[in-house]
Structures are given as structure tokens and as C-alpha cells.
Design a binder for these strands. Structure first.
Lengths: 191, 191
DNA sequence: TATTTTTCTTAACCTATATCAATAGTATTT
DNA sequence: AAATACTATTGATATAGGTTAAGAAAAATA
């Protein structure tokens, strides 16, 4: 499944066969069964991972034990707790498989090597970061300016594949509402 | 006031005198009076700016004409609509001076030159982006998991200088609540 | 297939925050 | 100093979305 990983990178930067070898020699494949953890809150996030198969949720747990979903990652998405990965501090996020997964992972050492040996990767990395940042800015904005119903409509527009595959209560949490509220919103919209 | 700009960058990466010249030769200083715009929604964000004096708000305007504040930027902060700046598409954000400001600005061409002539700047840029991204992740999280009162308390803890300088209605908008609600929360906390 | 677990829906009720309107207090501008 | 903007406060009322609880439906597991 490393093919899909290399193809995805190739969409942004050109990779030679030699470049591809660098990735293959430095990345690992992790397999997770549904409900297993890629990362647990409090652990140090050793790996950044590219989801090559399956689906995961990234979330925090508040003082009442309630989950708040930050990200839902399908194939082609990256998962990590960036803060923890960069600083070596304990992670705030938990990352858990919603389905059986295959994840291409690299630790910091592997990334250093890739950055050194595949010069274009620096650019890929920056572009990915910029895209994620802009997307997160927009999410803040939608939370500031839109109702729950508007956010749900925007979500199904933007991520129809997620709506098909992921339990509603996970989507409700991502939107910042109770699952009962999402159920009501859907009923209302069905008319 | 370019001193402050150079000093701030020097806190992250070392700059030689020659490096500093590169910045001085490629950046401009923009001055804005209170209520003037650094960027207006719909325009293309030509510049990224470093606030060397004053204070600005970055916000969107919704279909009812209501403002939603994404960022409050004091001295040392950067302002831009990153999406517009990177893609050349029209900006979603408006950036407006809350006080008379001095802003060190660079356009894309200037940045290209700086990146080429000051090799460490790439690293500075990446670190800044990473920090902003992590901060924005945390903001999403606080909106998902905390009440208005909790968010306000976290805000005054994190940004006491902003509380001193910026009208409450701007802070209320940043927190995603009505100014009346913030007023009531403050009254409640005063007890 | 039967059983257990998880997810979704519905209804009744509740609460945090919004909205509207009036007033008072502060800054700016003339 | 007066006049004109803004900004903050307060009270009355409204509402989106939360909470609790129960049952139905769907999915996973035995």
C-alpha cells in the first residue's frame, strides 16, 4: 500500500525511482485493528502517519470524560499530534482507528533523512502544512459564524465520503454538537 | 521600527549584518491610521505583514453583516490572509487597524529573494507556520470543549495585554459570543 | 441464527447564550 | 466644552442546542 502513499506525494512534487526508494527504506507500515490506538493522550507522538487504508479519529477527552473530535482521517490524510511530535512533549490528542487501518509512518529521524535525500520533500511538507492551516482557519470561522445546521450542510458538501463511512456521533462531535442534536437536524432537513 | 522586526526573527534564527541588509532592502514599512484597512475582503492579499507597532483585527463578515474576529494582532504578530496570499484568490478576511500601526510588509517577490539570500529564513517560516497551526488547533479544541466563561478565562490568562488594549466587543467576537454575554460573564466573575 | 453491543431516534424538559431595547459611560472629533 | 461617535451594562424575553431517558434499529460477535 506504499504505492498509494508515493502516488499522493507525486501529485505535488515529482519523484524519481531513487526518491521512491528513499521513502521505502525509511518508512514503516503500521497496521491497526478497529478501536486500536495510533496515539494515546499523554504519550509522545513518535510518528507522523499517512493513512493508506482505513479511517481514524483524532480527539481530546475533557474533564467529564467526553470526547471532542478534532479530525476524521480517511485514506490520503495525515495523522499526528503535531505539537507533541515537534516538541517531544506528551500528546493532547488521542488517535484511534475507526476501521482496520494501514498507516505509512515516519519518525523524526526518517523524515530528516528524507528531507536530506529528497530535496523536493521540504516543499511538499510546507504545502501540506499550509493547506492544513488554512482548513483549520476556516473551521474556526465556521464555528464563529454558522449554526449547527449550516455547519452540517457544509460538512456533507465537503466530505460526502465521511458521511457514508463514519458513525453520526463522531460527526456530531466534530461539528461541536450532541448526537441527539444532529439527529434532529437531519430529521428537520429531510422535510 | 525595523529593529524590532529583525530582533524578533533573531530570536529564532541567527542573522548576520548582511542578512539584515537583505530584509531592509526587500521589506517596506506601511503605516495605517486607526480604522484603516491592511486588507479588505475580496481584494488579493499582496503582502504578509509583521506588526511592529499598533494592533489590528482580522475578521470575516457574514451574510447578516456581522463581524467574526479570527485574530487580534499586537506587536510581534504577523497578519495576512494566507490562502489569498498563496493562491492569488480574493481574500475572505478583512484586516483593520484598531490603533495607528506600523507594519513591516513583504510581497511574494520579496520573500522569494529573502528565502534565497537568507537560507535560515525557510526554517523561521516553517516554525512560525507550525506554531500558528498548533495554536489554531487548540482554538478549535477550546470551542468544541469549553463554555464561554472557560474560554474567556483562558483568554485573559493567555493574552492579558490584549484585554488591556482592545475593546471588549472585539474580544467577545473572537470568543464567539455576543458582547452582552461577555459583559454578563465578567459581572459574574467579579463576584 | 441468536445475542450482545453500538448507534440512532424521539420526546420532554432545561440551560447557556442570543436578541432586543434602553441607558449610561467613554472616547473622539469639532 | 459641546457634540458626536463608540462601547459597556442591564433587564426582559427568546431560542438553539444540551440533557436525560427510553426504545428502535443496525452492526458486530458468538
Amino acid at each position: 500500500m506504499i504505492e498509494f502513499f508515493l502516488d499522493t506525494i507525486s501529485e505535488i512534487i515529482e519523484l524519481t525511482e531513487a526518491d521512491k526508494e528513499v521513502f521505502i527504506n525509511n518508512c514503516l507500515i503500521k497496521k491497526l485493528k478497529k478501536r486500536q490506538f495510533f496515539l494515546q493522550e499523554g504519550d509522545i507522538c513518535k510518528y507522523a502517519g499517512f493513512v493508506s487504508k482505513g479511517c481514524l479519529k483524532t480527539y481530546t477527552v475533557d474533564k467529564n470524560g467526553d470526547e471532542h473530535v478534532f479530525q476524521i482521517a480517511l485514506e490520503g490524510w495525515w495523522v499526528s499530534d503535531m505539537y507533541s511530535h515537534l516538541t517531544g512533549e506528551p500528546a493532547n490528542f488521542t488517535i484511534e482507528a475507526l476501521e482496520d487501518c494501514e498507516i505509512v509512518v515516519m519518525d523524526k529521524e526518517a523524515r530528516e533523512k528524507i528531507l536530506k535525500e529528497v530535496p523536493g520533500y521540504e516543499r511538499f511538507h510546507r504545502i501540506l502544512l499550509e493547506k492544513n492551516y488554512v482548513a483549520t482557519q476556516r473551521r474556526v470561522n465556521s464555528m464563529l459564524s454558522s449554526s449547527a445546521e449550516e455547519r452540517y450542510l457544509a460538512f456533507i458538501e465537503k466530505y460526502p465520503q465521511i458521511v457514508q463511512r463514519v458513525p453520526q456521533l463522531v460527526i456530531a462531535s466534530y461539528l461541536g454538537i450532541a448526537p441527539e442534536s444532529l439527529s434532529r437536524i437531519r430529521k428537520q432537513l429531510a422535510k
